[in-house]
Write a protein that binds this DNA or RNA. Structure first.
Length: 450
DNA sequence: TCTGGGGTCCTAGGACCC
DNA sequence: TCTGGGGTCCTAGGACCC
């Protein structure tokens, strides 16, 4: 907890629905529900007009239709949402270099890094009001709710207090008295299961939570969660605002209108999902060692099965093959409503399949002099094809001591320049031969060193 | 025909190694 | 040879968030 109110949380109001109402004037002032419109869809966002009828996020669309039949039910237009989100995040970053997006419609901003004369309440309040106005301008009319406080926790709680289109600044020193009367579910991480456990222990409010010993809380909800709750109940929160978060996993899943029973069809769907996952991995220059499938049965029981490879992959064929093998061990005779594929244990890039699909000897015989940065990452092996964001395509001449040297040589430029980069330079990634489904698939590989 | 999709983090048990 | 402990990796499930 900081001595000044220097953490800001911004939340765009009913974001998806608000974008739809902005872009389609006939929807303004009317109930709008964005989400899955099929038989098994759920509500992503309801406009405030729809909320009056009890429509809520995560409610089934079926339920929403029965509560508010005259609402407009729309599937999302994610490009439009992303455009507006980018405009807002860009605005926030112009104001402070330390911006932590939580989703398309939410972010923390560290005001200690903003250009403010001081962090006194009047200054911060005026700044936040100006920021809300500028959000309106860059998004062509969307509104945001903003909270400012001495920590992430307090800023987030504050932004909820005056929704929509409001601002709350919590004065340092008043945090605990603000929290004490509130229900424990204001604390991030306290969902239905934890709230029920606490309720059975007679704990409903933050004040009651504050009176419980650390040992007792750990006994009730586990070590990590218990210690977290102990501190948050006292508004004790030192989590920093972090601008960049590393991706830990990539996954694709789908719920089907009717339960699947045909194994061949399931294998085909998993194969298609594996292709989407692998394409996204390649697009971001990532690869991973653990392939996981997710299977939700007809009765909603959910199974995960995973397998960890000896080295990272971003290959459609490898991910698909492992996914199908994992499915083979499962009894799906009762029907399957959801299938999914994911890859985790991510490295910055790939070794598996660099020299062809199934050739484990090549993979294992990594030259001893090439040092891997960590067990999860693989060194820049000489000869592999790479691409640099500005320089374009080339191949690795050599590497060592944290530096990789690249020769930028292609069919068009046979005697290209040589450049060296830090091994973790984000501009430099392994080049992958395009697979079906990739955006650009007309490029030929560059010449290889002999 | 109740119950999405994309994530993160935690727990717990077993294998394996030192 | 027996016994124990600690650390890491892997797998499965669950809670939670937006």
């Amino acid at each position: 907890m900081r001595a000044q109110a220097s953490v800001l949380h911004l939340d765009l109001d009913a974001f998806f629905a608000a974008v739809e109402q902005r872009d389609k004037p006939s929807l303004r002032g009317k109930p709008v529900v964005v989400g899955g419109v099929g038989g098994r869809g759920v509500v992503a966002t309801a406009s405030y007009e729809a909320r009056k009828y009890g429509v809520r996020s995560a409610m089934s669309t079926r339920e929403a239709r029965s509560r508010c039949p005259h609402a407009a039910f729309l599937t999302g237009r994610f490009h439009a949402y992303r455009d507006s989100s980018n405009a807002v995040m860009g605005l926030l970053r112009s104001v402070s270099p330390l911006v932590e997006p939580l989703s398309l419609d939410e972010a923390f901003v560290d005001l200690e890094r903003a250009d403010l004369p001081d962090l006194d309440l009047p200054t911060v309040t005026a700044f936040a009001e100006t920021l809300r106005q500028r959000v309106r301008e860059v998004t062509d009319g969307l509104t945001a709710s903003v909270g400012v406080g001495s920590s992430k926790f307090i800023a987030k709680v504050a932004s909820e207090l005056d929704k929509p289109d409001g601002l709350t600044v919590v004065a340092p020193g008043t945090e605990v008295e603000l929290l004490r009367p509130m229900h424990v579910t204001v604390i991030p991480g306290v969902g239905p299961a934890t709230a029920e456990r606490l309720r059975r222990a007679g704990i409903h409010t933050v004040a009651e939570l504050e009176s419980v010993s650390l040992d007792e809380l750990v006994r009730l909800v586990g070590k990590a969660h218990g210690t977290g709750l102990f501190h948050l109940a006292r508004a004790d929160d030192d989590r920093p605002v972090l601008a960049e978060r590393e991706t830990k996993s990539v996954s694709v899943e789908g719920t089907y209108e009717t339960d699947l029973t045909d194994r061949k069809l399931m294998e085909g769907l998993l194969t298609r999902q594996a292709g989407e996952v692998a394409t996204r991995l390649r697009k971001h220059g990532l690869s991973g060692r653990t392939v996981t499938i997710k299977v939700r049965l007809h009765d909603f029981t959910t199974l995960n099965r995973s397998s960890t490879l000896p080295s990272p992959t971003d290959s459609t064929a490898t991910v698909a093959r492992v996914a199908r093998a994992l499915l083979a061990d499962l009894d799906t005779s009762g029907g399957v409503r959801l299938l999914g594929v994911g890859v985790s244990g991510l490295a910055d890039w790939i070794q598996d399949d660099l020299f062809g699909e199934s050739d484990p000897e090549v993979v294992e015989e990594e030259p001893a002099h090439v040092e891997a940065p960590s067990s999860r990452r693989t060194a820049w092996a000489p000869g592999i094809d790479v691409v640099h964001a500005e320089m374009g395509r080339g191949w690795v001449w050599g590497s060592g001591r944290g530096v990789v040297t690249v020769r930028f040589e292609t069919a068009d430029t046979p005697a290209g320049p040589v450049r060296s980069y830090p091994v973790d330079d984000p501009e430099l990634t392994v080049w992958r031969p395009p697979e079906p489904g990739d955006a650009e698939n007309s490029m030929a590989p560059p010449p290889r060193p002999t």
